[in-house]
């Protein structure tokens, strides 16, 4: 251990001490997502002296992130979030090894990434990815620290802790469509509180102190300063194995040229007001939010390749269609702009 006083204030806590600090300096944490929650958590995780921290996110900084994603500045717009964050964080504490993964977590990379870390932290903003994190944590035997927000309300829980209940025990089935911060709105201070609560759980797990939020979900309303805890049990009927994981999370991705040549139905899940508009007799536009109500319009016997602006909504659409037992589903490697160029230019 280094002979300096960097950690002296946290070592002064009887729950930490020299031995607790040693545990932190042997621990590793993977943060999935470098948006609001990620930015709120990472400086405290890094500051604490945790040995190794990984950050997974394929997104770039946009101006609408800046009010809450405090690791980024105006001049970072357009840059990869993980790279900017790593620079800031490394300057904060060079005791910590920071690994960046500049891509989105998916069924192909989750297991190999998770194997290298002790604790997995969910800092994402989409429901399907939570099932992926959950299922990969079960298969790799890692605890999963979760937080999610809806406007001024926060849910925090720890899943798969010491073989405890998982996200599927709380919410067995993916909900239809839920709104993210992008659509529902959020204050920077709310996401900061949620992130701080997650760091608090990470610390308790590493230090083995206090009560970890396992088998309970904390629901906090910051507008009312009210909070409640709801208890839930492990559902022993939920089985998780590699075959289930592969079926659920290994999404097949195909090129536009392949999908067109194979006569796939090309499903554009952007809203009707998004540009560029794509006009082609194989392209159908059904916005993600209307997909379930329009399910009767989508044939079951035709392979379907889905696209949107960034790939996020196509992945959500694919999970919705899976629920309705569609079998031949793919996401396109190209986004709407690239497809427009292929068809119209």
């Amino acid at each position: 251990m280094k002979e300096d006083n960097r950690y002296i204030r946290q070592e002064a806590l009887p729950q930490v001490g020299k031995s607790g600090q040693q545990k932190l300096q042997e621990a590793s944490v993977l943060v999935v997502g470098c948006g609001g929650l990620g930015c709120a958590m990472l400086p405290y995780l890094v500051g604490s002296g945790i040995c190794k921290i990984g950050i997974v996110d394929g997104d770039v900084v946009s101006k609408s992130n800046l009010h809450r994603q405090v690791l980024f500045t105006q001049s970072d717009v357009g840059q990869l979030k993980v790279e900017i964050a790593a620079l800031e964080l490394q300057a904060q504490n060079d005791d910590v090894t920071i690994h960046t993964y500049p891509y989105y977590l998916d069924g192909d990379n989750a297991l190999s990434l998770f194997k290298n870390y002790n604790i997995i932290v969910d800092a994402t903003d989409r429901i399907p990815i939570r099932y992926l994190i959950n299922d990969a944590c079960i298969l790799t035997g890692k605890p999963f620290v979760h937080a999610a927000l809806y406007r001024f309300q926060i849910q925090v829980s720890v899943f798969n802790y010491k073989n405890g209940p998982t996200y599927r025990c709380l919410y067995p089935e993916p909900a239809s469509v839920t709104q993210s911060c992008d659509t529902a709105g959020v204050l920077g201070s709310t996401v900061a509180i949620a992130g701080a609560l997650q760091v608090n759980e990470v610390m308790k797990i590493i230090l083995d102190v206090g009560t970890v939020l396992s088998g309970q979900v904390l629901l906090k309303d910051v507008l009312k300063n009210a909070q409640q805890t709801f208890l839930f049990k492990k559902d022993e009927t939920i089985a998780m194995d590699m075959a289930f994981f592969q079926k659920e999370h290994r999404n097949l991705k195909v090129d536009f040229a392949f999908a067109k040549a194979e006569n796939h139905m090309l499903l554009d899940v952007r809203t009707a007001t998004e540009y560029p508009r794509i006009k082609d007799d194989k392209v159908y536009n059904i916005p993600l939010g209307q997909l379930e109500n329009s399910i009767h319009k989508i044939p079951k016997d035709t392979p379907i390749s889905i696209f949107c602006k960034s790939g996020k909504r196509s992945e959500q659409a694919l999970h919705i269609l899976k629920k309705y037992n569609y079998q031949k589903l793919y996401c396109l490697n190209e986004n709407a702009v690239q497809i427009y160029k292929e068809l119209h230019l």
Binding site: G33, G35, G36, L37, D122, A123, T124, D125, R126, I127, R130, A147, A148, L149, Y150, R151, Q153, I154, Q155, L170, Y171, A175, T178, Q179, S180, C181, A184, V186, V191, A194, V217, L219, Q228, F230
Partner: peptide, 10 residues
């Protein structure tokens, strides 16, 4: 009786 649902935001 509380009606709970998953939140998406982060």
């Amino acid at each position: 009786i509380a009606i709970l649902s998953p939140f998406a935001g982060g």
